[in-house]
Computed example of a mutant assay.
Amino acid sequence: MKRLPQFTSLVAVVALSVSLAYWAMQLFKAPQRPINPPPVPVVQDASVEAGAALFGGQVSVAAAASNYQLKGVVAAANGRGSVAIISTDGKPSVALPAGAEVAPGVTVREVQPRFVLLQEGGVTKRIELVADDKALALPAAMPVVVPAPAPAPSLVPPPMPIENQQAPVTTAPAAAVTAMPAPVTR
């Protein structure tokens, strides 16, 4: 029994030391670094034309046109007014809408967001958009942002500033007419 107070003091000192160490670590710990998620792999959609030959079907579109390079596409939401930016044989790029002639005998048949179909002597050729590191990082379908319509103009005039407003005039019956001082304007 003589050692019970010493043992309790020892346990209390150990508990106090553990508590102080815990709270000191909580107070002086370094902030946690942000953890970047792993990069999402880019999955390209399978082409329907590529799968047509698997089951005996014929591909209606030729693989690619070698002397034409699709540099960019400005695709309209409704499909009309789309423009393809095409470079021919290393020449400067030209913006062409559907139905325009790229070279003699070669016309733009269709403009899609990722490819263009060219008609050359009865043969349809498909030109894919040039693969770019930045383009691969972007999703296939970009959201279209439509600006909100402007609010309709108000037909009610704005209120007048308080210093320009005058006090309302009240009329009293003829028998009780009293003189009122004029309002003070600053």
Rank of each mutant, 00 (worst) to 15 (best):
M1A: 08
M1C: 05
R3E: 11
P5D: 12
Q6R: 05
F7K: 15
T8G: 11
V11C: 12
V14Y: 09
A15K: 04
S19A: 13
A21K: 11
A24E: 11
M25C: 14
Q26D: 13
P31F: 15
R33N: 12
P34E: 14
V40I: 11
V42D: 00
D45P: 04
S47V: 06
A50F: 14
A52P: 09
A53D: 11
L54K: 07
L54D: 13
F55P: 04
S60N: 02
V61A: 01
A62N: 04
A63K: 07
S66V: 02
Y68P: 02
Q69E: 03
L70R: 00
A77C: 06
N78I: 02
N78M: 02
G79V: 11
R80V: 10
R80N: 09
R80W: 04
G81W: 01
G90E: 07
K91T: 09
K91P: 02
S93V: 08
L96R: 14
V102N: 07
V106I: 11
V106Q: 05
T107N: 10
V108I: 15
R114A: 03
R114V: 02
F115P: 01
V116H: 07
L117K: 10
L117G: 02
L118G: 06
G121W: 03
T124F: 05
I127M: 00
V130A: 03
A135Q: 00
L136I: 01
L138Q: 08
A141H: 12
M142V: 06
P143A: 13
V145C: 07
V145P: 06
V146S: 07
A148P: 03
A148K: 06
P149D: 08
P151S: 12
P153R: 08
S154K: 04
S154T: 06
V156I: 06
P157N: 13
P158K: 06
P158T: 05
P159G: 15
M160I: 07
P161W: 02
E163N: 13
E163I: 13
Q165Y: 07
T170V: 09
T171K: 11
T171R: 12
P173Y: 01
P173D: 00
A175G: 01
V177G: 01
A182F: 05
R186M: 13
